[in-house]
Design a protein around this nucleic acid. Structure first.
Ligand SMILES: [Mn+2]
Ligand SMILES: [Mn+2]
Ligand SMILES: [Mn+2]
Ligand SMILES: [Mn+2]
Lengths: 220, 220
DNA sequence: TCTTATTTTTAGCCTTACCTAAAACCCTAA
DNA sequence: TTAGGGTTTTAGGTAAGGCTAAAAATAAGA
């Protein structure tokens, strides 16, 4: 059973909202994520239910099925591989890739993705630090922690961002935070949760709690 | 005014059928080329006429406008650049690229095409020898001649194929004809138009008139 | 010129993916 | 246990892009 572009986009949204296939997801949440109306979502959920990529019980939200999870991960794989291509090969900035990848991910050609993967040297993470599922949908996830959850004096390395919006990424570029940077928490202000962070042992960065919450690190 | 994917495909077909914007094109011809019904074509012609990329007079066929020609050439440019990418970078065979390029050509991102062009080193021809329009739609066309139009003892070089179907390209691979090959016409059989051709000064090839008519060369 | 054959358009219908407005449902708090 | 209030679905509509069947226009032959 093949999925249309719209169906793939919905399924991906449902997968993300359900935190990797565990939680059940409400119609309103899908509508917000997809920027459509709940009425349109109801329509689409019926279709996705018929195709058995989600389990749909009217009025009770949806759960993604195993088959649906597999499909969603394939689309995510394609999206992230294209993002790597755009940044590594075509010199796109990391805040310029998402919209284009949102289109490229729907190109139907298993050979294309297989070759692209090889050409990029089987990357494990996209430009935002998100893991790239392999062709079987397996993801090697790293245990990640938002900066605001780390304690003073803890060290680590930035590995991903939670928010991939151009605005946020441009801000990180400006202040000099990037994926791979080694960091140490110097201070946390209790009043507003803002933080002071040492980057690469030389640069001090002040950031709001909101910003810190959208930067993910592994501890070391 | 932006064109949908379907509109881009129709416009491209009309451009090709009109031999580079000169001839006028009939509804039936478009239907055959697009593998749709004439009734569907009538609908689409009205839309394309409204968008002023063609001039449409009911019952009298269509002519592509200057604006339409420009749009068609942009789509063709994208199609051929992607074909070069697939062959040069992803090791696709020249008979495997057309379908995928037919999808990729509709990705909307001027930056993407500009970067892709640079990344491929501004190629002038696609894997089938067809010229790639520049970003202004200019095509540097070479005067090309089908092999069956050449005379005995004439020499030249294969520069393109007229038929890009997988079947034909695979056949050329098998017999060892390729773009760039130096050729000389050794003999032409008057009865059926079949020919004997010397390839790269060492290999003799027999081909039917049908095959010869689909191989394009420049004379030398 | 008249009649027929061919081409093209129109009319009406389908599916997908969206919308608004109204109805139905679920849940919770009085 | 029932009345709101929020959520979700249904009903009905639009636009794009296809289809078939029928009507209309053009082209061709006698
Ligand atoms: Mn992305
Ligand atoms: Mn998408
Ligand atoms: Mn196409
Ligand atoms: Mn080509």
């Amino acid at each position: 059973m093949t999925l249309t572009t719209a169906e793939e986009n919905y399924l991906k949204a449902i997968y993300h909202l359900s935190d990797g296939a565990t939680k059940s997801v409400s119609t309103n949440d899908v509508a917000a994520e997809m920027k459509t109306k709940p009425a349109s979502v109801s329509d689409m959920l019926r279709k996705l239910g018929d195709k058995e990529v989600i389990e749909y019980r009217k009025y009770y939200g949806v759960n993604i099925t195993e088959e649906g999870k597999k499909r969603a991960l394939q689309t995510i794989r394609k999206h992230r591989l294209w993002e790597v291509f755009l940044v590594d090969k075509l010199q796109f900035a990391w805040d310029e890739v998402h919209e284009v990848a949102e289109e490229l991910e729907h190109i139907q050609s298993p050979l294309l993705i297989q070759r692209l993967d090889a050409y990029l040297n089987y990357p494990k993470f996209d430009p935002h630090g998100d893991p790239i599922p392999d062709e079987y949908g397996d993801v090697r996830a790293r245990p990640r922690l938002a900066l605001n959850e780390m304690d003073v004096d803890q060290s680590g390395q930035i590995v991903a961002v939670k928010d991939s919006s151009a605005a946020f990424l441009k801000y990180l570029d400006k202040v000099g935070a990037y994926i791979g940077a080694r960091i140490k928490i110097l201070d946390k202000v209790e009043f507003d949760g803002s933080m002071e962070i040492l980057v690469d042992q030389k640069k001090t960065l002040f950031m709001s709690k909101d910003v810190a919450a959208n930067i993910l690190a592994i501890q070391s």
